[in-house]
């Protein structure tokens, strides 16, 4: 019985890690900054914490704070250097940032444990701690999904010139998005390494970028709900898809491809649009004279 439970505990921890990582990816994305550096932040947070605990004997929470803060600072500096690049180029710069870090990890000798990584990263952090931390982050982020802040994010993403004309300091928000994304990503890495007690270059490579991205694609990039839904979907689906067997990976790929092509905004957007359609239908039914005006719509 305890084995069964502890099996699910690992899955739960993975869900928490992936959710945080996806949230880290979402913050800049919601402001129109296509950054895949979150995996790099994850690596920085994870390795910093691992190195401090294993090599310098730091205790748990200071090591977590260090991982979070250092990732945040490096993220901010990264932002200063590349925020002026447009869409695709910025995305590729962040991909290469993350990949460079994985190569550095491989070549880091005894500091990073080389290709094998570091072991024995033990601490006092429990799954409950992790859960509470993630809940706190989600609560903080939910504030940015309501009212003024959410409108600002939308304006910055959809039309930066308009945002500027509305008085929004677009440059400052973009820089902040790097900082916050970095902190959350670093936190995800720190907590993750404490849960798993190991970290290796393999766990922070291109595969992780793709995984985090697929969570966003399926769940949606606009809301923390999407990050949670996407993470749960990917980690818990295999449990229910046993019958698919070894074609599971192919099915996953198909789902992601379909979502990417036909469902921009992921599952969350599908829901939001459904609710809006209902509102419009209801409104047209109750205000017949307005229908004529809206008929001229694009």
């Amino acid at each position: 019985m305890m084995d069964w439970l502890s099996g699910y505990e690992v899955l739960f921890q993975l869900t928490l890690s992936l959710t945080l990582l996806a949230l880290s990816l979402q913050i800049p994305l919601r402001m129109g900054v296509v950054s895949f550096a979150s995996v790099g932040y994850f690596a920085i947070g994870g390795y910093t914490t691992a190195i401090l605990v294993v090599h310098s004997g730091w205790s748990t929470w200071p090591a977590v704070v260090a991982g979070t803060v250092i990732a945040g600072v490096i993220a901010y500096l990264l932002g200063l250097g590349i925020a002026h690049l447009n869409g695709l180029y910025l995305a590729m710069a962040t991909v290469s940032f993350s990949m460079i870090l994985s190569v550095v990890a491989v070549n880091g000798g005894s500091l990073t444990g080389g290709p094998i990584g570091l072991f024995g990263v033990m601490g006092d952090a429990t799954t409950w701690h992790f859960f509470i931390i993630v809940i706190l982050v989600i609560i903080a982020i939910s504030f940015t999904e309501r009212g003024r802040l959410s409108r600002r994010f939308d304006a910055i993403r959809e039309d930066p010139q308009l945002a500027s004309a509305m008085g929004i300091n677009v440059v400052r928000y973009r820089r902040l998005s790097f900082l916050i994304s970095g902190a959350i990503g670093g936190l995800a890495g720190s907590m993750s390494v404490l849960m798993k007690t190991t970290i290796s270059p393999e766990s922070i490579g291109f595969g992780l970028i793709v995984l985090a991205l697929t969570v966003i694609i399926v769940g949606g990039q606009g809301s923390w709900v999407g990050a949670v839904v996407g993470s749960v979907f990917f980690l818990w689906m295999p449990q229910t898809l046993d019958f698919v067997g070894t074609w599971e990976a192919v099915l996953y790929g198909l789902i992601v491809a379909v979502a990417a092509i036909y469902l921009p905004g992921g599952v969350v957007a599908v829901y939001k649009n459904w609710r809006y359609r209902r509102y419009v239908a209801h409104r047209n039914a109750t205000l017949p004279e307005a229908v004529g005006a809206s008929q001229g719509g694009e």
Partner: peptide
């Protein structure tokens, strides 16, 4: 009045 909840795509150009 009456258009508050609609999205721009539902509106005519003049609106």
């Amino acid at each position: 009045e009456g258009y508050e909840g609609l999205r721009p795509s539902e509106l005519s150009y003049g609106v």
